[in-house]
Design a protein around this nucleic acid. Structure first.
Lengths: 219, 219, 219, 219
DNA sequence: GATGAATGAGGATTCATTCAT
DNA sequence: GATGAATGAATCCTCATTCAT
């Protein structure tokens, strides 16, 4: 594992565990097995690290969302595919996703607008699918923005509790959430096969290899 | 407004906007119109402030949840009442709720276990209603823990976007979320009247009076 | 016990236990059962407290030393009487004496010179007795200043270990030290009776009533 | 001189002059020619500094005491050798010794017990020599603990007044104190030659190079 | 007499970052 | 690539002291 990757993974883990502001540059360096001065050979600044991380994470989510959306013309399938892609992304990159969901407010520089823009683009995909489904009568949606918020928040939550070594496989997780989402908007249940080929979700190079885990002693 | 209340409200606002770790004691003091040394006249420490805030918030949510649960024997009504209480709490105390949802990890002392315990108690109320509804066949729940997580996360999200001066009244918000929740678990739609008398949700003394608002300049 | 006395005793105890610089005005107030603002009705400042304490203590020691010196024309008896007076003073006012011995350097104002002057006057009494005894041949003193320092330091030490409720009464303590001092300077042993009438040693109003004792819990 | 040594010497000087509690970390840094943040590169904390200093000083004194004691089987020579070693240690490391004598009470952590243990071990050496001398009849000791306290206090005092550039050489100082000590316990006078080879006393790396001196202005 | 509230200065310590080696 | 040393600014918090009530 290269130095840069070690830094990124250490940063993601710590930002996820303690939050950006509560994490020191020395903590990251120590967790990456580097001297804190050496860390600056790989990274411009602490905020650069966060910016890069959020951008890559958000871009990946947006890409997955677009693929999911483009995979069908049926709003029900579009929604199911997007939810499946979203929860899989959160499940495969739980720590990065957690930071992505919680630390946007820590960005101060110009990078912030970029991230917010990406998130808005992503949310508009949900809007489009929900709006069309509502228009065609496939969905029963009393309030479109509320439904959209609820759907996305529900999916975001996955990063907070899902454990890869737990009871549920990613595919099962996707099935469960697909069902919940379809029911929530009053749509028909979309079977897993209808969503094939699934959107490919890959682990980000930022995501730490070992899951959360308490206190990885170094000595 | 007393000094203590001013401190608490300032702290909630800043913790909600920037996060606990990124908020300085001087920032809080300035926002409360006090010298930072004076602040310590009212409060033991920065962490005490957070602990007290999370406890009061979590206790209030638990109380509301219990009242909601106790108001009916029908799982569908129980769920609807709990969701209504939860979103109303988030809508009436958006900033406090935001902090409550995001800053548990910032607690280090013994207070942490207390807060986590309260949250667990709260979640068990949802578990009970969902489990019974599933047993009686009123709900269609493939995976109970997943449904519980999804429901609660969806409700928590409210604090992140709801604006009291926006399009939706609290009552309308409750109607929307009640509908989404009922559909999500495959239950019948519960009308507002069935939830009467509603659980009373009051503004916490910690909640700032003016809503979020960007950068209340003081000078 | 008046408020002023309570403050003085609390201050002496804390200065003796933790040192002047490490003792806060609030600590003193709490130990005296007062609000820290109320304390300022009795005392001008923290340093005033120390100054007054050192002066009263040093004046008392000087008075005792003078009485001891004046009680006889025989250098041996003079020395014995002075040593007896000194150790009795330390034994009867152990905490005040301890502060007196250790905290002169904490004085910054003009009071410092006064205290140092008193101490010099006191030391000159020893010098006079030793010098005359050496001249008359009653004492065998190779180095007068060294002997004087050694004698006084030896006596000062009493405050650090003597316990009124211990094995030794004050009179026995005096006997022991008188013997040590006489031997040290090569003089004849002076019996207790030769030192009558003894110098009266009274407890200072500053000296706490209960001995040192660890952690006098207040609640 | 290395940075660490500079910090140590500056700390010793200031602790000796003003006391531990009255010395600021910034004062130490300034006296060492460092920024106060840089100081933390060398030292863990202010208390660590004191702990290390007291331990090294006390260990050195104990080592010297043991060598002195082991150098002879005659209690009189043992006592003379120990007194000579003690006063030489105080004379060669006056500032470190002063802190060592006065600041044990400033220790709060677990290091305190260690220091107190070392001091107890040291005192027991005196006890052994005095006890045996009393048993053999070489010493006339009415009260053994009192004699031990008096001896040690008398020696400790040296750090408070001895000046290396003064009237007395270290060897002369040793001669004077040896004489005083022998007389004090009613023993025979032990000549310097009987104490050969003398215990080697070396300057601690903590001891400032220039003597006390008032206010070494840096600018 | 007594006290809650207030404050500027300063306490020890950690911060992100730089740079010569 | 790597690091020990360095630093100004900032961290949370405590200080002795004052004053209106």
């Amino acid at each position: 594992m290269s130095g840069l990757e070690a830094v990124r993974r250490a940063a993601v883990r710590l930002f996820a565990e303690r939050g950006f502001a509560a994490t020191g540059i020395r903590d990251i360096a120590r967790a990456a097995g580097l001297n804190s001065a050496t860390l600056y050979h790989y990274v411009g600044s602490k905020e650069d690290l966060l910016t890069g991380m959020l951008r890559e994470s958000q871009e990946d989510l947006l890409r997955a969302g677009r693929e999911a959306f483009a995979g069908s013309a049926d709003p029900a399938v579009q929604l199911a595919r997007m939810v499946r892609a979203h929860v899989a992304t959160e499940a495969v990159n739980p720590l990065t996703s957690r930071v992505s969901d919680h630390e946007v407010h820590s960005l101060t520089g110009p990078g912030r607008a970029v991230i917010v823009g990406l998130r808005d683009d992503y949310e508009s995909l949900f809007h489009k699918a929900l709006a069309r489904g509502a228009r065609t009568g496939q969905f029963l949606i009393t309030d479109l923005p509320v439904a959209r918020y609820a759907l996305i928040e529900m999916c975001n939550g996955v990063a907070d509790w899902y454990r890869p070594d737990g009871r549920l496989s990613v595919a099962e997780l996707q099935d469960r959430f697909s069902e919940l989402a379809c029911r929530m908007v009053g749509g028909r249940l979309v079977r897993r096969a209808e969503c094939d080929p699934p959107v490919a979700i890959t682990r980000l190079s930022w995501e730490p290899l070992t899951p959360a885990g308490p206190e990885q002693a170094s000595a």
